[in-house]
């Protein structure tokens, strides 16, 4: 059983890919791209965790992240739209969900290059998870632009808010860490919900 565990974990994560469908084409591809990660909690919560983490880092890291994370997400989304078969990579999402929450809870100050690396890898994976097969031509560009803009908006506003509140209020950094622990708890429960049934069989 011990040796099988990693494999089971990986397998348990596969079904997630099927979610990456368009929310609605009613608003056009741009907004479909923008709403896709924001309406799905399994994307939004890890994004928020990364943004909170960025807010707890020195401001240089957070600032650099504003540019790099959306770029990474854009790259990932393009990959996700082009090569949806090798979907295994996108499932590291679940691990990121939990571990980003943990990092926020611990309020770890990472070395700038380490934080950037985490953000880039996570961005590509997340973008990949948001890829879709339902867009073509101009729609494809608009969709990728939408996901990227969503990444930029969520990252910018949340990390700035976290940075400001932890710098200006005594209780600020504690509030951010508490939010981090909530996200971590959600990550634990969600991972359990997806993985436990498979382990028990």
């Amino acid at each position: 059983m011990q040796r099988k565990l990693p494999l089971i974990l990986v397998l348990a994560l596969i079904p997630q890919c099927s979610w990456a469908h368009l929310v609605s084409t009613r608003f056009g591809e741009f907004y479909a791209g923008m709403l896709h990660p924001v309406l799905a909690l399994n994307h939004l919560l890890p994004w928020l965790a990364l943004a909170l983490l960025a807010g707890l880092q020195p401001v240089e890291s957070a600032r650099r992240n504003l540019l790099l994370f959306p770029l990474a997400v854009a790259t990932g989304t393009v990959l996700g739209c082009l090569f949806p078969e090798s979907s295994l990579i996108s499932q590291v999402n679940l691990l990121a969900f939990f571990s980003l929450g943990l990092l926020v809870t611990l309020a770890l100050r990472l070395h700038q290059s380490l934080f950037t690396a985490v953000a880039l890898v996570f961005g590509v994976i997340e973008g990949y998870g948001n890829g879709t097969l339902d867009v073509f031509g101009t729609g494809f560009l608009l969709y990728v632009a939408g996901v990227t803009v969503a990444a930029y908006i969520v990252m910018t506003i949340t990390s700035a808010a976290a940075n400001w509140i932890s710098g200006h209020q005594q209780w600020g950094s504690i509030a951010v860490r508490a939010l981090g622990s909530w996200i971590m708890a959600a990550g634990i429960l969600y991972s359990g919900f997806l993985i436990l049934p498979a382990l028990q069989s």
Binding site: A62, R63, L66, I153, T156, I157, S159, A160, W164
Partner: peptide
């Protein structure tokens, strides 16, 4: 959203 983005950029310098 636009105002929030402008504010955020100021905060993060």
């Amino acid at each position: 959203v636009m105002l929030a983005l402008v504010w955020s950029h100021k905060v993060l310098q």
